[in-house]
Write a protein that binds this DNA or RNA. Sequence first.
DNA 1: TAAGTTCTAGATAGATCGCTCTAGTGAGAG
DNA 2: CTCTCACTAGAGCGATCTATCTAGAACTTA
Lengths: 200, 200
Amino acid sequence: MASTRERIVTATAELFRRNGYTGTGLKQIVGRAEAPFGSLYHFFPGGKKQLGAEVIREAGLPYAALFDIYIASADDLVAGIEQAFAGAGETLVETDYADACPIATVALEVASTDDGLRRATAEVFEAWLATGTEACSTFGLSREAARALAIATVTSLEGAFVLSRSLRSTEPLDAAGATVAARARELLSTSAGSARHPRG
Amino acid sequence: MASTRERIVTATAELFRRNGYTGTGLKQIVGRAEAPFGSLYHFFPGGKKQLGAEVIREAGLPYAALFDIYIASADDLVAGIEQAFAGAGETLVETDYADACPIATVALEVASTDDGLRRATAEVFEAWLATGTEACSTFGLSREAARALAIATVTSLEGAFVLSRSLRSTEPLDAAGATVAARARELLSTSAGSARHPRG
DNA sequence: TAAGTTCTAGATAGATCGCTCTAGTGAGAG
DNA sequence: CTCTCACTAGAGCGATCTATCTAGAACTTA
């Protein structure tokens, strides 16, 4: 069994993802984590805010690896993007439209209400964009084009999650994937650099 | 002064937009609306859920008109899309990154927790997509292409709002606008139909 | 005027919120 | 063995949550 601290973080991340920050209670967290209430304030003396900030970072940062899995290691940039959106759609359906972005709900909740938590979400998004820019720039795109495409990928995924979860349909995710793919083709065609994988 | 019911709806919409559903208390609502607590349950006997559902619809549906303003009445589809994203960015900056989508935060909060409220958000998004599809199809796009572009517009806006509010920057909104514009050009170029505005 | 309806007004209930507090447990160090 | 300290355990605090309740004001209609 994982350590108490780990169980608290994991349980909080799961509850934040589904119920958001204000929708998640501390009693609910320790209940799901099977942890004593006192342990929560032992590990997170700053209370809910400290726990929230650490969960945002610990749950969010690992998702940057998806850029490596889907984009950086793909033979074709456009195909990699399409597979990323398809994979997101599969996860969404498998979890009954519950597990999408780990921090999006919290990010919107705290954007105008708590600057400390907002900064935590901003750090995660910036980390994703940095990894995404790196992944995209290996295909011969300029730094600016790679960052633009990374932003397009993340924003389209986030927005598609909003609509797909609300409509309970992967149609928004499909349309968003096609849109980012179009942008990738456009940026590749105007790129002066050579594609990394013109032929394996 | 607006009617008590109207003041309650307006105040709730403003609070939902910034603080979300669970982050908004009924006392807070009647306080801002300058309405007696009893009136809230007089007009909304179903309590917070009924109020929430009606606010989602009443606050969300009018935004469909933005498709008419920015897209349907534009001379050029791509330019209209770019102006829509630029306008969203201006609003965001003017309101200190607070006023973005009126229902996005609530939509994510309730997607997996309350099916009645989820359906209310789904109705609003579908209404937007219907208006958006109508607006895009006047430029000679097929029904499928017009709907794909409408979805791309809404999802990109929603996702860009998430990142822009978190990062406190319009960069995501700019990149998202360029992405949807690229998709519009692609769909227009492969469209068999004739553009509505090839020349005034 | 009288009766009836709509809306205002807010006290209050019962549950839950984040958080603090004290007490106890258990493993490793000296 | 004893001391120490990290951790467990949960009762309970004041505040706030949604919701209910009664009472009265204001307006409409007979």
